[in-house]
Simulated scan of single mutants.
Amino acid sequence: MSGSFGTTQSEERKAARQDLERLKKEFNFLEPDRGDLDSPTIKWRFAKPDYTQANLEYMKGKTKNHPAGSLELVVENLVKRWEMEASHFQDLDQWTTINKERLCAQANGGKVFTAEETWKVGNYNWLMAGCKKDLYDAEKEDFESSHRHFRGAFTKGFPWEVLEVFSGPPTVSFSWRHWAHFTGQYMGSQGAGELLEMYGFGVVELDEYTKITALNIYYKPDEFVEALKGDIPPSQLSMGKALVGSGCPYVHSKVTGTPARSSGSCNIL
């Protein structure tokens, strides 16, 4: 059983699906495309994931509403599909988003990871390989433990969105936002539902088949972990938006009912 008053996970999932469909209809939102998760050929690392709650949190908290067919949406879906494959596919050979012989992944100019290495250690560990070891020691974590830490902290999901694309294929550069409500526990630190936001920049190289050959991510993981541990206030993380753009407040204000702040151009349908 999950939740209060005997609410089952299936009932929570059904309610989340209803809310998700309402937002899609009311605001013309598009659900993220992570590929055919029902394909019988997929071998799952653990079990087939259900993205209903994650997609709902994404729709409720995103600051952009990229039109169908836009480069921004294509890039966003490519990254989301890559993340799904990295997190849930059992075998590297199943990945459709990468050129596994050529892939190089790097965060903040640090260690370069091959496709095999990223599959083995998991996204959290290669992305946080340069984090101060007293905050997060990626060498002491494995795939399972790293996912357990962050899924335990963000019980309703850890949404991600593209803010702006600056160059198209084969070299795609873009700014992004990652956010979540800290509703669970992280290494002994108990969340109180506060919003934690992370901003950064990415450069992705694609081959002639639009498969990823290089992935370079730039952001500040130390500050994010400090906020998780309560060492700095969550509001300090929002300062990162100045580096990548403030995003569009319209979508969030329509969903939550909070007043929209003035800002620059918005990508709204």
Rank of each mutant, 00 (worst) to 15 (best):
R148T: 07
K156Y: 08
P170Q: 15
V162K: 00
E205C: 02
E208C: 03
S265K: 14
V74M: 07
A16S: 13
P259F: 14
V74A: 06
K62Q: 09
D93K: 09
M59C: 12
C248Y: 12
W160R: 11
G202Q: 04
G109E: 02
S10L: 03
A129P: 01
T96I: 07
N108K: 00
E161R: 06
N99I: 14
D91F: 13
V75W: 06
V225G: 10
T210Q: 05
R34G: 02
M198I: 12
E197L: 07
G6L: 04
C266A: 13
F150D: 02
E57Y: 03
G6I: 05
S265E: 14
I232F: 12
H66F: 04
V79M: 12
N99R: 08
F182R: 00
K241L: 02
F166K: 15
K60V: 06
D36Q: 14
E72W: 06
G257D: 06
V204K: 01
K60E: 09
A227Q: 13
Y124M: 00
G245W: 00
K48D: 04
G264H: 10
G184M: 11
L23W: 03
K111I: 13
T114P: 01
Y250N: 12
K220I: 15
S189H: 14
H149G: 02
A115R: 03
T114K: 02
R81K: 14
E197A: 10
W179Q: 00
T213Y: 07
V244Q: 07
V244N: 09
E31C: 08
L243E: 10
E144M: 08
M59Q: 11
S10Q: 13
E141H: 10
R13L: 14
G35M: 12
T258F: 03
T41S: 15
V251G: 14
N216G: 04
G188A: 10
S253L: 06
A68K: 14
F5T: 11
F89M: 03
E164A: 00
R81Q: 10
K211V: 05
K111N: 07
E12D: 11
T41W: 15
H149Q: 08
A214D: 10
G200V: 10
L269Y: 05
D231T: 05
G109A: 05
L23A: 06
R34C: 07
P170V: 15
H181E: 11
G35V: 09
T52Y: 06
A107N: 00
E101S: 08
Y250P: 03
S265I: 12
L78P: 01
S145E: 08
Y186M: 04
A47I: 04
Y250I: 13
R17T: 08
K254R: 12
F89Q: 00
E57W: 04
I42V: 12
T256K: 11
